[in-house]
Design a protein around this nucleic acid. Structure first.
Lengths: 304, 304
DNA sequence: TTTCCTTACGCCTATCGTAAGCATA
DNA sequence: TATGCTTACGATAGGCGTAAGGAAA
């Protein structure tokens, strides 16, 4: 097969239609250029340039081959640049998983930040529950996770990216909706709509722990996995709920959110997790970018 | 810049993920393969394969570069094949000019023949009058012409591809339309619709020569360039005309064509003309094909 | 110990540049 | 004669294969 050097020689000759000038542009003397063209023609088995008269002309085959050669050279340069970019983390592909609620509070600003600083990184976003994300992270199916703590996996680094208060959610028609604040004791005897223990262990433990600590006992508990579904139930009067502040982004008209008295020391964290040794340079770029621009809302912590 | 050989090595390694096997497939020993990969990585300035563990893995940059490399190699092979085809005349581009009337009699079968035997030749067809074609041929703007004789250009070879009778064209409502044959003497005193001397010199000279030889004098002459327009005028009763047999393909309902008595020794030729030294191998292929399959209707003649 | 990739070394081919050759205006 | 591409020739650089080296299972 021919050589890229030969292609470069031929393309230049096709542009100049003069061996001497082409050789000068290629920083070589004419003889090696002549030999390269001859070798190319012998390799392909066809005349590419007609040297008949004093001027050099391209044959039909040569004209076509010049275009194709130019394309090959362009693609070679593209491949070179693109690969360097991927290796440096300035380009590439990255998959980020996130919890449903973080699509209201954190993901939009993350996407905007990425588009601004790394427009060449192709971003794939996959909504998953925290347990699903832990499995995907362990099998390295995602580069970065946005999930609820704790992350008890080896060789995984985590950074808190969001810390929020808890709010009380009550139906708009409920008497409590008129209060500016709602004490957790007011939940006593009401129906509590909250997260189930398996699919949402973090919120489940947090909310039930809060009620136990306050000695408050709902009359009944309705488990629902996703926050927007919980607020939907609250809106139609099923019961009351305790949700993170970012739920404001998905609260329907029939549900109102109020500051929750009696949960001052408790907060909800969103954590960014990724493998310590990442094989994807783009992932490292994104991590650094997030910690620089969005990391002020939490501090870095190391997992086991 | 890297080498196509290096790309081939890398693509094979990316497929095998094993230096030994890749080297075997490439018909070389491992050491040169290792050096090629190292040189490639050094050239690009990035690690392409992770040799950490016992197994070889591609990095993100390497995976991308492998795809791009494969594409470059594929295009190189494509360029090779395509250029050989063009040089051999099995592929390429060709421009053929033709007179309007030949699009009814000859061009369709020519196109069908080309599509069947040379599907890789891109055919551009341009309808032009014979004088326009002579100019285009002289300036080598077309590869092959289908026109009316004579072709008085140097270094042009011609082949007759079609020879036809002349027919009389009369309005369907005209008394002569009832005859099975029409003698040229019947034109005497009628209006003759025929070709003008400048745009259609061949037909003009032929028709007027025919009338003079027969001592027939029309009452008036209406010049129109194209045969289909002449027949349109005949159809609405403007006058009578003498046209080639292939005009049957474009005769409107109001015009009928009849054998012409008194023009037995006269015939209309369609000629294929092309440069003797063609720079386009596809042109030579087409010429040979036409002379083999469609040339039986005429015999080869040499022009000055 | 085996497997697998890398480094070392000698041989050879290929490319380069300079210089001479040869055809054309 | 001048221009422009090709052939000849000696020097150098780079590739190949064999053989030795070193890390991991």
């Amino acid at each position: 097969m021919f050589t890229l050097v030969q292609l470069r020689c031929f393309v230049t000759l096709a542009e100049e239609l003069n061996f001497r000038r082409a050789a000068r542009r290629l920083n070589m003397s004419q003889p090696p250029l002549s030999r390269h063209i001859q070798a190319l023609e012998h390799e392909i088995g066809a005349e590419l340039v007609a040297r008949n008269r004093r001027s050099v002309e391209l044959t039909a085959a040569g004209a076509s081959f010049a275009r194709l050669s130019q394309r090959i050279l362009d693609q070679a340069i593209d491949a070179y640049r693109q690969t360097r970019q991927i290796a440096s983390g300035d380009a590439g592909e990255i998959t980020i998983s996130f919890t449903a609620l973080s699509s209201y509070a954190f993901v939009p600003s993350l996407v905007a930040l990425l588009r601004k600083h790394y427009p060449s990184i192709a971003l794939t976003l996959r909504e998953m529950t925290t347990p699903q994300q832990l499995a995907a992270l362990a099998s390295r199916q995602v580069d970065i996770c946005l999930l609820r703590p704790p992350v008890a996996l080896p060789n995984i680094r985590t950074t808190r990216v969001l810390r929020e208060r808890l709010l009380a959610a009550v139906p708009a028609k409920h008497p409590l909706a008129k209060r500016r604040q709602i004490n957790i004791r007011e939940f006593d005897g009401s129906v509590l709509v909250t997260y189930p223990p398996v699919e949402g262990p973090y919120f489940h433990g947090m909310v039930t722990g809060l009620f136990q600590a306050a000695g408050v006992y709902p009359s009944a508990i309705q488990y629902i996995t996703q926050t927007h579904a919980i607020l939907g139930c609250v809106a139609v009067g099923v019961g009351l709920a305790v949700v993170p502040e970012s739920a404001k982004g998905c609260a329907p008209a029939g549900a109102v959110l109020r500051p929750l008295i009696g949960a001052e020391g408790v907060h909800v964290d969103l954590v960014m997790a990724s493998p310590v040794e990442t094989t994807n340079p783009a992932s490292a770029s994104v991590l650094a970018l997030v910690e620089k621009h969005l990391g002020s809302r939490g501090r870095a912590t190391a997992a086991a």
